[in-house]
Structure formats: structure tokens, C-alpha cells
Nucleic acid binder design. Structure first.
Lengths: 193, 193
DNA sequence: TTAACCCGTTCACTTAAGTTAAAAAAGAAA
DNA sequence: TTTCTTTTTTAACTTAAGTGAACGGGTTAA
């Protein structure tokens, strides 16, 4: 599991043994059961999450309805809004599968970034990369229809469609579960001719 | 104009005179005319843009149609996808007004970040902040209807609705110009009773 | 001044998503 | 197993967005 982490980091910076040990000594590996809620609305947790194995999801409860807006799977991570802005969270985060996560809090980030300036660089690179990716995803969402979004998801993240319940996928695609079901039927109809 | 920049930076880090001079010596202030295209599809420019005054917009051309996905106004900036990933750009960037911009290229960023580690820190903070903001905006977009998006824009960025053409706003809201026009009529109808 | 173009609006029509409700299918618990 | 619950599908109906076309106001260019 540690190797997976260090492999990932090595894409951005190279670590000495000392630095690797410093990371390991933080003891940030956590195994988490399916269904565990990592962050609740109104909470102001300092924790960031990075998925080594499994899947976590971000969702809101609006008018009593769950609205899922994001999934994070292997080698993806999230620093919640509430950590960055030090405000209560608007959303929930929970595990959709038994997962292995890295859980780091803001203080650990500051400590590591101070002790090892390399870390600061990696964090900046990661944020910039994520920001650019996020922007592209947003642009694609804005410029396409629900059906196109679904087809594109089928292309780019086919695993998600398998491992995640449809009604969560629906709000992720910006529509209602019934519409997703209908849309799928429509596509199947077309491909049958 | 320089004061505006240094005021902005002071929210993140404090600068010495030496550092301020280093920034000024980069000579990054540019005045740009309305309509100027800063980045074209297919180009691989190294430039990031920060708006001191005016407005720039990001747009795609899909099936011959312009699709505007983002506006950046005073104190907002963008590092295009193509800079981060060193790939040709998928989109265009142009000025919707006569503007004063900061234009910096990737090399300058690297140079400043190396010379002044403080800068690295600011860049990380900015990216993290923008990423969190962007995520919230995306979530809001996903969980609301075109009408709600328009009303929310009216609340949060009323200036945009004034300074930007409707047909550009429409795709920014994820709909067609005709639909925006109709939607506005519907809202006016309601408020009249 | 006229002609051409762009933009915002309106209209009629089509298509697809939202809504409400119910049935069917799949999973989890007793 | 049977029961209970959750998830997915289906259906009928409503609402709103997409589409294609046309009109009028405003600007620009010939």
C-alpha cells in the first residue's frame, strides 16, 4: 500500500528515505468500512482524504433529497471546502465501498510543507493539475446534454457505472434517477436499431 | 494599478521591497483591447492571465457554435489547461472589454517560485482556494435548474449580466440563447404576478 | 440611404427531463 | 426460506429546453 503512495508521489517529486519515513511516521493510513460518513454537513473537520483503494462520494441533502456531486476513486483525493475556508461544510462525504484512505489534517500539511519545501511544490502541482482537470470537466458538463454526459462517462469511467448505484450516478450527471433509467433505455433502443 | 496587485498578494503573503521590485521588473502589465484573442484553439501558449481591470472569457467552438464556459473579471485569473498539461488548447480566450491584465508565462513562474519560496506558498494557496471555489460552483450547477442558475447569477454576479452579451451568458448557464430569453420572460411574468 | 449583419426576442413545434405513482427487481435481514 | 427494504424500471402527465424560422432594433459598411 505504501508503495502505491510513493509511486504516486514520485510522479511529482523524488523522495529521500528520510522523507519517506517522515510520511510513514504520520500514520495516515486508514481502512474504512462501506457506509462510513467521513464528513457531515455543518462540521468543520480539518481532514483531507486520498483514496488508495475504494471509493468515496460527496453529496448534499437538498429538500430532503441526496444529491451526489462527486466520486473519488483510486489515486484521487479531496480537500473539502471547509478545510480551505475554515467554515462549516455544506456537504457530506461517505464511503461507497470498504476503502483504504490516507487521512491528513491541515496541521500535518503545514508541518510537512514547512519541514520539506518539496512538499509545498508537490501540493501546488497537484492543485494546479486538479484545477485544470476540474475546469475541463465543468466545461464538458456545461456544453453537453445528459445523454452525452452519460455516454462520455461510459467511455471515460466505465468502472463508476458498475460500482456505484444508479440513483447516485443520476445526480452526478445532473438529472433524476427516473431520467437516467429512461435515458439508458433510449440508448439501448437506438443501438438495437 | 500596481497597488491593486500588491493589495491582492498581501492577502496571502507579505512582500519585501526587494520582492515587489522583482515582480515589477518582470514587466507583466498589459493593456489589451476588446476583442483581442489571447489564446486560440490548437495553440500551446505558456501564458497565464490575471485580470486587474476588464473581463476575459473562455469559449469553445463546437459544431461551428461558440460555447462560452467561463468569465474572469477583476481579481480573477486563469492558468489555461494547455499550460499545465503542455498540450494544445481545446478552447479560445478573448477579451470582452478593454482590459488591463497580468500576463505571466510558465518560466517566470518557475523563476519566481525558485527565487522566492514565498511565491510557491502563495501559488499553492491560490490554487487550493480556486479549486475549492470551483468545486462549489460545479456542485451548484449540477444541483440546480437553468432558472435557478440564472437567479443565483443575478444574486452573486449581477455585474456579469450587465456587461456580457446574452448569448454568451446562455452557454455559460448551460442553455441556448432562446431559452435564456424565454426564461427571463417567465421570471418577469412571475414577478409581475 | 440602403443593405448587410448581429443580437435579442418571439412563435410553433419537437424532444427530453421533471413529477407522481406504481410495479418489478434486487439485496439485506430475520 | 420469507419478509422487509432499497433500488431500478415503467408509465402517464406536466413542464421546460432544443430547434427552426421569423421579426425588429441597432450597428456597421458600402
Amino acid at each position: 500500500m505504501q508503495d502505491i503512495l510513493f509511486d504516486f508521489i514520485s510522479k511529482y517529486i523524488s523522495l529521500t528515505e528520510e522523507e519517506k519515513n517522515a510520511i510513514l511516521s504520520l500514520d495516515i493510513f486508514r481502512t474504512v468500512n462501506k457506509g462510513t460518513v467521513l464528513l457531515e454537513k455543518g462540521q468543520q473537520s480539518p481532514n483531507s482524504y486520498f483514496v488508495l483503494k475504494g471509493c468515496i462520494r460527496v453529496y448534499y441533502i437538498i429538500d430532503g433529497e441526496e444529491k451526489t456531486t462527486a466520486f473519488y476513486t483510486e489515486m484521487e483525493g479531496i480537500t473539502p471546502h471547509c478545510v480551505v475556508n475554515k467554515t462549516p461544510s455544506d456537504y457530506y462525504i461517505s464511503c461507497t465501498e470498504d476503502s483504504i484512505l490516507l487521512v491528513s489534517d491541515a496541521d500535518m500539511g503545514i508541518e510537512m510543507n514547512t519541514k520539506f519545501p518539496k512538499f509545498e511544490i508537490m501540493c501546488r502541482m497537484l492543485s494546479e493539475e486538479l484545477l485544470a482537470k476540474q475546469q475541463t470537466a465543468f466545461d464538458e458538463f456545461k456544453t453537453s446534454s445528459p445523454e452525452q454526459r452519460y455516454l462520455s462517462l461510459l467511455q471515460n469511467r466505465p468502472d463508476l457505472i458498475q460500482r456505484v448505484p444508479q440513483h447516485q450516478l443520476a445526480s452526478f450527471l445532473g438529472i433524476k434517477p427516473q431520467s437516467l433509467s429512461r435515458l439508458r433505455a433510449r440508448i439501448a433502443e437506438k443501438s438495437r436499431g
